[in-house]
Write a protein that binds this DNA or RNA. Structure first.
Ligand SMILES: [Zn+2]
Ligand SMILES: [Zn+2]
Ligand SMILES: [Zn+2]
Ligand SMILES: [Zn+2]
Lengths: 130, 130
DNA sequence: AACGCTGTGTAATAATATAACATATTTAAG
DNA sequence: CTTAAATATGTTATATTATTACACAGCGTT
C-alpha cells in the first residue's frame, strides 16, 4: 500500500482544477482560475505544482510547460512517464504500455549509469487532425 | 545523400559555440558569449537556435531549456532523441542505442496515432557523482 | 521589375519560474 | 508538554525564458 499523502488547501484546490481538465494546464492559466479561491501569486501555484508532481498526482509535460493529472490510481509511475502529443491540436494523452515500460525500465547505457526516472514524449498528428 | 544546408553568419557563430561545449548551453548564456561577435538581442539567438534544431545540428534538452550539439554526423535523428541526464552534476549525454531506437520507432499506441518524432530523457546519478 | 522566401536588427513585451523574507502550522522527539 | 525540525503560507520583487511587431536586406524565380 502507498503512503497516503494529505494535501493542503492550496494543493487540493489546484489538483482539483487540473483533474477536471483532461488536457494539460499552464501555471499562469491555473493562477488565473484559482484567484477566486484566494490564491493570488505565481509562487503559490508553483509550490503546489511542485508537490503534486513529487507525489505523482500530476505530471509536467516538459515540451509544453504544462501540467496534466495522472489518471493511474497507483501513482507509482510518477518517475516513468510516456506521453503522446498531437502537434496540431496539442492534445496530450498519457501512455501506459507495459512492454514499452519494461524496455525503458531495463535500459542500460554503456556508461553504467543507473536511471531512476525517465520521461518520453511522442509527437505526431492525432486521428482527428489527420 | 542529405541536402547540405548553408548556414548564415549568425547561425554559424552560434552553432560553433554550441559545438565547442560538450554540455548544453542556455539561450541567454549563448547570447552573453556572442555579444562580442555582434549578436545583441535574444531574438537573434532564438532564431538561429530554431533553425539549428530544425536541421538537426543541435537538440533542445526540454527539461533544462538548454541546447546541445548533435555529435551524430548523419543528423537524421533530429526527430528521435534520447538523452541521459545526471541530476547531480547536470551532465548530459546523447544516447544512440540501436535496439532502443527500434523499439521507439516501432511503437504503436492503441489510438492508431502515427508518431513522427520523439524525445526521451533519462534521469539518474552519473558514475562520477555516485 | 515584381514576388516570395528567408534572414537581419531593434525595441518592446509576454510567459515561465524563482529568490528572499516573515510568519504559521504540523510533526516528531525529548 | 515543550521544543525543534520540517513543511506550508502570503507577499513582494525579480530572474529567466521566449515571442510579437515592425522595418528592411538579400536572393532566386518568374
Ligand atoms: Zn501518470
Ligand atoms: Zn490533434
Ligand atoms: Zn543527435
Ligand atoms: Zn553527475
Amino acid at each position: 500500500m502507498q503512503k497516503q499523502e494529505t494535501l493542503t488547501k492550496n494543493q487540493k484546490i489546484i489538483l482539483d482544477l487540473i483533474e477536471k481538465s483532461d488536457q494539460p494546464l499552464k501555471a499562469y492559466s491555473i493562477l488565473f482560475d484559482v484567484k477566486k479561491k484566494g490564491i493570488n501569486a505565481p509562487l503559490q501555484v508553483y509550490r503546489a505544482l511542485k508537490k503534486l508532481v513529487k507525489i505523482g498526482k500530476i505530471h509536467k509535460i516538459e515540451s509544453r510547460n504544462a501540467f496534466i493529472a495522472c489518471k493511474n490510481s497507483k501513482c507509482q509511475i510518477a518517475k516513468a512517464t510516456v506521453f503522446s502529443i498531437c502537434e496540431s491540436c496539442e492534445d496530450v494523452t498519457e501512455i501506459h504500455d507495459h512492454k514499452l515500460s519494461e524496455h525503458l525500465r531495463d535500459f542500460k547505457d554503456n556508461k553504467g549509469m543507473k536511471y531512476s526516472k525517465y520521461n518520453l514524449e511522442f509527437f505526431g498528428i492525432c486521428k482527428k487532425c489527420v
